[in-house]
Every structure is written in C-alpha cells, then in structure tokens.
C-alpha cells in the first residue's frame, strides 16, 4: 500500500483500534483502507464524486455516494465512534450545521480545515487581493471554498455551541507544529485539526 497522506496519518493517532468510523468526503478511501488493514477499523466513506466512488469500490472500501449536507441525516445518533471530515468544512453550505450533525452521529468528530488567519493570507488581503497559497491554491472565482474561517473563528464557534475541544493540532503546510504555532497559532497555522465532542447533556450517558 502507498504511504498514507500525511494529514491522514496524523488523524490516525486519534482513532481507536477496532472502532467504527464514518469518513465524510472520503475521496479514494485511503484513510478507511489504511485503518481497516492496520487498525481493524470498520466503517464507511461518504463521497459525492462518481470517480472517487469508483476508486473506493475498486479498492474494497465501503462507500456511500451522497453529499455531506444531506448524507449525514440518514445516520442514527451515536452510530459511529468517530466521524472524520478533512479539508471540507470550508466548502459546505452550512459548516456549523454539518459539525452539529457530525457530533450527533459520532461520539467524537475530527475536523480539519485551512486556517484563513495565516500571515500569508493576511498579507495578500493587506495588499488588497484574495490569497493564493499552497494550501489555498484556487482563484477566488473558481474555488470550491465558500466559508473560510480562522483558528480563532472556529474556536469561538465551538465555545458558542458548547462543543468540547478534546485535542487540537495546529500545523504548517509540512504538517509540523513548533514554537511559533504555540505563540501565535492564528498567525502561523496553515492546517488546523480538531478532535471534538458534543456538549455533555443532562442525563446523557455515552
């Protein structure tokens, strides 16, 4: 098997062996295939693109062809240990509703997104232009990304909705952390990864 995409490899650290996962926007199913082989993890990918679905089928990954917004509704509450969504948050119609759904369906949610607060983005905006960077390569008119946020925005939303941040990783484009990210995370983070959980409800036992 080919080496796993580096950001997916990092996500694996958060995923318990033998757990049940749902991977939203699973692409060719690399994460699921890797976890099935190496961690005994079972689950499904959700993917809207037909070519990606075909690739999943060819590699024996369970895939359900649906888009994230409508697809999540079909799953029962708490039916997965982890629901994973990598680099798709900014492309959704209602990212906040999607995360709420993720935390309804999964006991934990793993969400990653490009940080719009990175200094290169700010520099481009200061010059009066929309940014084009390594992690945001599209022009403003043909980008799939419609809801950018910064690390600070995201954490503010989590606080507002009561979503608990169990863990986070704030990384540069080579997926390294470092002192600068700790000192000024919103300025130096290019890729943000969060491990989230729904608010504890009265009388609710996981």
């Amino acid at each position: 098997m080919n080496k796993l995409r580096p950001d997916l490899a990092l996500i694996c650290d958060w995923i318990k062996p033998d757990s049940r996962i749902l991977d939203l926007g699973c692409g060719k199913g690399e994460l699921l295939a890797y976890l099935a082989t190496n961690r005994g993890v079972r689950g499904y990918g959700l993917e809207i693109d037909s070519d990606e679905v075909q690739a999943c089928i060819e590699s024996g990954v369970n895939v359900i062809q649906a888009d994230i917004d409508e697809g999540l509704r079909d799953f029962e509450a708490g039916s997965f240990d982890h629901v994973v969504m990598t680099q798709a948050l900014q492309a959704l119609q209602r990212p906040d509703e999607a995360i709420a759904e993720i935390l309804r369906v999964g006991r934990t949610g793993i969400v990653t997104f490009p940080n719009f607060g990175h200094w290169q983005v700010r520099l481009a905006l200061a010059r009066g232009r929309m940014p084009i960077t390594a992690s945001l390569p599209s022009a403003w008119y043909d980008t799939p990304n419609i809801h950018f946020c910064t690390v600070a925005d995201f954490e503010a939303l989590c606080a507002q909705r009561g979503w608990r941040i169990l863990d986070r990783r704030l990384l540069d484009r080579s997926l390294r952390g470092g002192w600068r990210h700790r000192l000024a995370p919103n300025l130096f983070t290019e890729v943000a990864m969060y491990l989230l959980q729904a608010p504890r409800l009265e009388g609710f036992t996981a």
Binding site: Q54, I57, V61, V63, I64, D74
Partner: peptide, 21 residues
Amino acid sequence: SREIVKALVDAGREVSYALIE
C-alpha cells in the same frame, strides 16, 4: 435504495451505494 442502505448501515453490515446518472 437509500432506505436499503440506511437499514444495512444501522444493522452494521458491509455496504457500498452508488448513484448512476
């Protein structure tokens, strides 16, 4: 077909679903 898929997922079965244009 999605009803079938949902029931299979709820039952924890192995399933893939494709929608052909």
